[in-house]
Amino acid sequence: MSIFTALVTQLLHLALILALAPVLTGCVRWLKARLMGRRGPHPLQPWRDLLKLLKKRPVLAENASAISRAAPYVAVGAALLAAALVPSFARGMLLAPFADLLLIAGLLALRRFAMALAGMDVGTSFGGLGATREMAFAALAEPAFVLAALIFAILAGTTNLDVIIGIFQEGALGLRVSLGFAAVALLAVAVAENARIPVDNPATHLELTMVHEAMILEASGRHLALWDFQASLRLTLWLALLAAVFLPFGMAAPGAGPIAWITGLLVFIAKMAALAFTLAVFESAIAKMRVFRVPEFLGAALLLGLLGAVFLFVSTGLS
């Protein structure tokens, strides 16, 4: 029975994330447009784009190797698996025992690897430029994420996301300075991972600033649809991760029935809407930073994670 419940939760979660991801991207775009005084495309526009692009044949460069063909599928697969591991409305999903923060970090790294390879495969200068920048940023963003995971692990005694959320939900740990530092570090990493302002501009093809768009400049048709879809999935995943760890209230306990799921679902949608609105306001209020400032920004995130971990280490070691 419990396995059945876990399976149903997992399937519902997957369906929810799959349906929600492009809508979330559309909502952020629409909110940003409204905040800037434009009417903005309909929030369902990313879905329409996806369905149209999926029907189109990709056009590949003459010298494109198998990497260009395989990379979008690898990236979507990794992003989908990672998104399946981060709980949305209920804990205790079928894959919960595998929902390790380090595994999620690894899947995100695999996705980034596929994307950078696809950027460099055809040998255009823009693709290579985007790939090098992405990897340079990742060199600082990934350790910051791992340090945040380390802070959670010291506090909760495990890196399993499901258990961590359960412990945070009980509230026995209280408000901790280290958790505050981890929150700031994770927010900075999330901004960099999702290629949002101030690290990258998701809405531009201006050559000097772009990172993410530069790598998929060559993609078209089905492949472009997959790249766009994995970008939406990644945004949903990060917002769900932040919501689950730092705003853990309202989530259904493992083995709870459909009524708890519905409240969990409503709370989850409210949390995502609030986060999307915050993101839109943040992006409208701030300017994109120079590319050479980004390593400093991510380095600061890394140091904050380190500071939180040092605080925890010293205070648990000496007290």
Binding site: G174, L175, R176, G180, F181
Partner: peptide, 17 residues
Amino acid sequence: GQLPYDLAHLLGGAVLL
């Protein structure tokens, strides 16, 4: 786990931040 002390602690952390 006690709100008054936790909040004071967090505010101190914010000043450091």
